[in-house]
Simulated scan of single mutants.
Amino acid sequence: MDLLRGRLRAALDGGPALAVPTSGSTGEPKSVLLPGSALLASAAATHARLGGPGTWLLALPTTHIAGIQVLVRSLVAGTTPAELAGPFRGKSFTEAAADVLAADGPRYTALVPTQLTRVLEWGGDALAALRSFDAVLIGGAALAPPVLAAAREAGVRVVRTYGMTETAGGCVYDGLPLDGVSVEITAAGLVRLGGPTVAHGYAGSAPFGGWFTTSDLGELVDGRLQVLGRADDLINTGGEKVAPAAVEAVLLAQPGVRAVCVVGVPDPEWGQRVAALVVGALSQDALAAVRAALGAAAVPRRVVTVDALPEKAPGKVDRAAAAALAG
């Protein structure tokens, strides 16, 4: 940790760019070169959106950009972050949060959706601690609407973030870009992000030039970004294009479904069929809801119940492993 802090301090002071690996959730990890200017711009824009510099709880690994950004924001704020010791458990979270909540000024933390779901399930002291934070950033993966609704009903100040290593972490909060960040939708429907938080580029590759085109499909509705899922996750079944994220959203709204991953599996007749890995129970009514909302092609033809979805990085589902399990 001390070595990483030293490297961060050097980058923020104009030294060599920090090399941060991508999660590799959709392929081989790449090394992203993040100059100090991008890290500083992200931290400043985050503090401006949330209500000023504050004290942070580090509950994510510092091998990924979300955890690194907690350290960057703390360095910029001149505060010392509390660090969650050991696995993410109710007791360890409550104890680590107590150190932050005792500090003066704003108190923040950043979690992935899985962690938020666990705290809601634990309730008690852990949930009481979480609702005491001035903002809880949730990123790394899509946040299911029922979980968001439950968190807000419980009094948790959730802020949904969208971004990636290539943009120095989250750069769109609750659908609205941070100060200085630009969002465009390409002719192919892909989300394109620009501004001072964009990385220099990948190690050994050409610079990004201030803009990064993601692999995510999206649209702008009344100025807010809505991410529709990854373009390379689209399932082609009998000539019909099915967006897994849309199917997942319908299924997650059904009783008994705690988590779900929808993937395409090979089919000799249709090319691909829709399959679903489900944590919980999937009823015929849930499948009927998919048919009513998205059409017959989107209904999962194969359902596999699992105890937990496979993950490749914190909060990121390993879709390749999910497809292997479903197939």
Rank of each mutant, 00 (worst) to 15 (best):
G24D: 04
A97V: 04
P29Q: 02
A151C: 07
A275P: 12
S182Q: 14
E311Q: 15
G169M: 15
S25A: 14
L39S: 06
K241I: 01
G170W: 01
K30R: 15
V227R: 03
E240W: 09
L287E: 10
W211E: 15
V76C: 01
Q254W: 02
S25Y: 06
D285F: 03
V156I: 15
G327N: 09
H200M: 09
T22N: 01
R107Y: 14
V227Q: 08
A292M: 11
R131N: 07
K312L: 10
L4N: 04
E95R: 14
G163V: 08
A38F: 11
P146H: 06
V303I: 13
L18C: 04
V279H: 15
T109L: 13
R89W: 05
R273Q: 14
G256Y: 06
G204D: 15
G315K: 11
V290W: 13
D2H: 07
R73Q: 06
G15D: 01
P268E: 15
T214H: 07
A321T: 12
F208P: 14
N236A: 09
E269S: 05
A149G: 11
V181E: 11
A17G: 04
L234R: 04
L193V: 15
P29H: 02
R118L: 13
L225S: 02
D13L: 05
A135N: 13
L50V: 07
R89K: 07
L120F: 08
R301C: 08
